[in-house]
């Protein structure tokens, strides 16, 4: 069963609809799964979130959440979804407890009624129960916002960039929390600009310039990557990058942390690259086959289909 269904949804801004935020996109999210919408700022992620949470009307196409139409049945949808917007949108001058109480009351429930669901997260906040939300650290604000989105036990949870600007340790913790929520049967629709988080999702959509470039499982997405990928490193990484680009058999080279990710033209051998780098005076040269990452695939899609380059 599908929890979310999006069919040819378009959203346009500007006087003449000249800004295309969503270009007729379609996707389906099965119940009880984690679906990741992965793409940079300006890709259209937030527009889709706002349409699915009934805060924005689509200009084309149709969409439903738990079988309810986002236009006709907006009242039903609002009762069964939890939404954590990208910008911190709790009441800064209410305390932790007051914010949570407020959201519970809005949904005609109590903190105690669904305490089991939020206990895991809320227990970390309880020592700060009386602190104003505005005075919390970034990580704590994020946890409170998640609690407020969960307090009415939603069937579908919408999280718009919950980990943006959050450090690597807190991000890992956050994803562990989402996994536990999924086990309780909640469907999670989450967006992120961090491509390494894609592997935490059951399915992902790569989005750029209002278009969905690919929808797949994280593993399937990497399977789409056809030609072999080489990891290349040497003593001076910037100079190595410049030299690798000059080598005729190289079709592309991107910096990727400790290694440059290099693709060779068909039929070219990596040994040639190694001796070439030696003649250029590099030392400590290492060239090996590596597995592509979601970012490799994203770059690939951006480049092979030029329309995604903005």
């Amino acid at each position: 069963m599908n929890s979310i269904s999006v069919k040819d949804v378009g959203k346009y801004y500007g006087r003449k609809n000249e800004t295309v935020a969503l270009d007729k996109i379609s996707l389906e999210v099965s119940a009880g799964s984690i679906f990741g919408l992965i793409g940079p700022d300006g890709a259209g992620k937030t527009s889709l979130f706002r349409i699915l949470t009934t805060l924005l009307l689509p200009d084309a196409g149709e969409a439903s959440v738990q079988g309810f139409d986002v236009v006709k049945d907006y009242k039903e949808i609002r009762k069964i979804v939890g939404y954590m917007p990208g910008k911190f949108s709790l009441y800064q001058d209410l305390s932790v407890r007051e914010n949570l109480h407020f959201f519970a009351t809005l949904f005609k429930t109590t903190i105690e009624a669904n305490y089991e669901l939020i206990r895991d997260i809320y227990s970390q906040l309880e020592p700060f129960n009386n602190r104003r939300a505005g005075a919390l650290s970034g990580g704590m604000k994020q946890k409170l916002a998640l609690c407020c989105a969960l307090v009415h036990k939603p069937e579908v949870l919408f999280l718009d960039e919950p980990t943006t600007g959050v450090d690597a340790v807190s991000r890992k913790e956050f994803w562990a929390m989402l996994k536990r929520l999924k086990q309780q049967g909640i469907t999670i629709f989450v967006s992120t600009p961090y491509m390494d988080e894609a592997t935490m999702c059951d399915r992902i959509a790569l989005i750029q310039g209002g278009k969905i470039m690919s929808i797949n499982t994280p593993y399937g997405l990497l399977e789409e990557y056809s030609s072999p990928l080489w990891g290349v490193r040497a003593d001076n990484m910037y100079q190595t990058y410049l030299d690798v680009l000059q080598y005729p058999a190289v079709s592309q080279c991107h910096t990727f942390g400790a290694y440059h990710h290099v693709r060779l033209r068909e039929g070219a051998a990596a040994e040639g690259l190694e001796s070439y780098l030696q003649t250029k005076g590099h030392s400590e040269i290492e060239i090996k086959i590596i597995s592509p990452t979601v970012e490799d695939r994203f770059i690939d899609l951006m480049q092979t289909e030029n329309k995604y380059l903005i």
Binding site: P40, D41, P193, H254, T255, E295, F298, I299, M302, L309
Partner: peptide, 14 residues
């Protein structure tokens, strides 16, 4: 480089 696409992020580091 927060929030930029992976190509731009790399061009930026160059």
């Amino acid at each position: 480089t927060g929030g930029v696409d992976p190509l731009t992020r790399r061009q930026f580091w160059l």
